[in-house]
């Protein structure tokens, strides 16, 4: 763990994996909740957690460097089920990249338990991890000028759902009617860092489940079927 000072009132804590970043984030939230850290923002990301708005970053930096962080992210907490239709315009391209059929893409994706590693890009946009590394895909060579709201998309190791219509370069594999962001709702964001997420296939009528067998046995211990260390 490396603690990098950022300006006069922030620290960037760098770890070596996404899982460690999630574990560190959970630990920092716990410390804030118990009152041992006074901080305005705790912003997890791919390999880091940013602590912004600190009154004494120097002291906290030395404390953190000596700190023990639980090695694995806790698997507790609420699971958000997102209804999904695997009907995205890039589904065939993703199937080709994965070397499987389009139905397999849906089956593998819906059979994975995801976790919101961090948010960014737009309010309510979560970077979801859970797919094993062999399913990493590149961004589109040419970004789309308008990706429809609700698009379920892949890039690198991440799955994301576009909260609003916006430009984007991710590979679109499906769509959801879930409202990812509604600032009139409390909380406004459906997904926040640490939230567990499952994609639940629905038919084109938005109701009946089709395809994508869900290996429910993999849920009992709260772990995704694809296994992570």
């Amino acid at each position: 763990m490396r603690v990098l000072p950022v300006g006069d009132s922030a620290l960037l804590v760098e770890v070596s994996s996404g899982d460690e970043a999630q574990a560190l984030h959970a630990e920092l939230l716990r410390r804030r909740a118990e009152g041992s850290i006074a901080v305005r923002e705790i912003v997890p990301a791919a390999r880091t957690v940013l602590l912004d708005g600190l009154t004494d970053p120097v002291r906290l930096a030395s404390e953190l460097t000596a700190a023990d962080v639980p090695p694995a992210p806790p698997r507790a907490g609420e699971v958000v089920d997102l209804p999904v239709r695997y009907d995205g315009p890039d589904l065939a391209d993703v199937a080709a990249l994965w070397g499987v059929t389009e139905q397999d893409v849906a089956r593998i994706h819906a059979g994975t338990e995801f976790r919101v590693a961090f948010c960014g890009f737009a309010p309510g946009f979560g970077y979801l991890t859970g797919l094993p590394p062999q399913y990493d895909v590149p961004r589109r060579a040419t970004p789309r000028t308008a990706v429809p709201a609700g698009s379920v998309a892949l890039a690198g190791p991440y799955t994301g759902v576009y909260p609003h219509t916006s430009p984007g370069g991710w590979q679109l594999i499906g769509s959801t009617d879930a409202v990812l962001w509604d600032h009139a709702r409390v909380p406004a964001a459906l997904l926040s860092p640490g939230t567990r997420v499952r994609f639940v296939p629905v038919g084109t009528d938005g109701q009946s489940p089709v395809g994508a067998d869900r290996p429910d046995t993999a849920r009992t211990d709260g772990r995704g079927p694809v296994g992570r260390s």
Binding site: V6, G7, A10, L12, E41, V43, P44, A45, A46, R47, T48, V49, L50, D52, F118, G120, Y127
Partner: peptide, 9 residues
Amino acid sequence: PSEGVVLGA
């Protein structure tokens, strides 16, 4: 990899 950024960065 993406990381959090602060005002004034």
